Amino acid sequence: MARNTGSVSHAGPNDGPAQWLKVDDVARRLNCSRTFVLTEIRAGRLLAFRVGRHFRFDPSEVEAYCASLRQTR
């Protein structure tokens, strides 16, 4: 069961989509650096799941984040 700790959740093995995104994948989609992605996670603007030491992203959450950026322009 995933438990929410701010913008980082700890995911179970069967939680979420079939294809999780990695930090590098999200950085490529957003055309930004890994550091920016990590900053957005820590700021609570981008939802990430913690799997061990690594962050994973639900593709729909990344799309929602992109949509929120488009709306603020």
Rank of each mutant, 00 (worst) to 15 (best):
D25R: 06
E61Q: 13
T72Y: 08
V8C: 06
A27D: 05
F57A: 01
I41E: 03
L46K: 01
A64N: 13
V8W: 00
R29I: 06
D15I: 02
L30F: 05
L47A: 12
S33I: 00
D58F: 02
G16W: 04
G6C: 09
R3D: 14
R45T: 10
D15Q: 09
F55G: 06
A2Y: 13
F55M: 11
A64F: 02
W20Q: 08
G12L: 09
I41C: 09
S60V: 05
L47S: 12
P17I: 02
E63T: 04
F57D: 03
V37P: 06
F55C: 11
G12P: 03
G16K: 02
R56D: 06
S7E: 08
L38M: 09
V8E: 12
F49K: 03
A18M: 12
S33H: 11
T72W: 07
R28E: 15
T72H: 14
S9V: 00
L69A: 11
A67S: 10
G52A: 05
A27M: 03
R3S: 14
R34M: 00
S7M: 03
T72D: 14
F55E: 08
G6E: 10
C66K: 13
V8Y: 02
P13W: 08
R70P: 12
L47G: 06
F55Q: 09
S60D: 14
G52M: 04
A67I: 01
D58Y: 04
S60I: 06
N14Q: 15
C66E: 13
E61G: 07
R70F: 10
G44S: 12
K22W: 03
R3C: 11
R50W: 01
N14D: 15
S9K: 09
P17N: 11
L47N: 11
R50Q: 15
N14M: 13
L69N: 12
S68P: 07
N14W: 06
L30S: 11
F36N: 12
Q71W: 05
Q19F: 05
N31T: 10
Y65H: 11
A43I: 00
D24H: 05
E40F: 00
L46C: 05
V62A: 04
N14Y: 11
D24I: 00
P17F: 04
R56T: 08
